[in-house]
């Protein structure tokens, strides 16, 4: 299977799972080995960093930020991964505590946990669950507008709406439905 950058981008946009998995697996072990050799990073942490880098790659393609690969996929993934790695190392240096141990500390001792971060994680989980419960039409509409950055006019054509205003109104209703998921469980004070 020969694939140039353009094809890879196209396949990922089409959510071709076999291509997504194969690209992910192609550089995974090499990245973990690279971080271990050069930074003596724990493989589990390296794996998480690689996952995040891959998701950023996926996001950049789907949000239209990455339209053309100027380098190989490996170079691109490694660049993101190295960036994320440097940030983690910088954070470790600042706090003096390795990232994994910071997490353990939070789990073991609720007094030192970072409540805002944990709240954010719970909120995001609730939103993801809420998003899955929306109608197919709502999910598509929100995805097109927020994730793929399509204009209202494009959405009107893709989803066969009669007017731009009806797209806007429907999008507003879908958004509010999703918003109600967190509004019912949290107050505005939770967001500061």
């Amino acid at each position: 299977m020969f694939m140039d950058g353009e094809t890879i981008i196209k396949k990922i946009k089409q959510n071709d799972k076999s291509v997504i998995v194969e690209i992910y697996k192609s550089y995974r072990n090499e990245f973990i080995a690279f971080t271990f050799k050069n930074y003596k990073i724990d493989p589990e942490l390296a794996k998480e960093i690689y996952q995040d880098a891959f998701l950023a790659f996926y996001r950049n393609i789907n949000t239209g930020r990455l339209k053309k690969l100027e380098s190989s996929v490996k170079t691109y993934l490694f660049q993101i991964g190295k960036f994320k790695l440097h940030n983690e190392l910088k954070r470790q240096k600042r706090t003096g505590i390795p990232v994994e141990e910071q997490w353990d500390l939070r789990v073991d001792n609720p007094d030192v946990c970072r409540p805002k971060e944990e709240k954010d994680i719970l909120m995001q989980k609730a939103l993801v669950a809420g998003f899955k419960k929306l109608s197919e039409k709502c999910r598509q509409l929100l995805r097109l507008f927020y994730y793929e950055h399509k204009h209202h006019e494009e959405i009107m054509q893709i989803m066969d709406y009669a007017t731009v205003d009806s797209v806007k109104t429907q999008k507003y209703k879908c958004f509010k439905k999703l918003e109600s998921v967190i509004k019912s469980d949290y107050t505005s004070e939770d967001f500061f």
Binding site: R59, N62, M123, F131, R143, Y146, Y147, L178
Partner: peptide
Amino acid sequence: KVIDGIYAAQ
């Protein structure tokens, strides 16, 4: 947060 949630869901 809701927009972040939409991203996370995708």
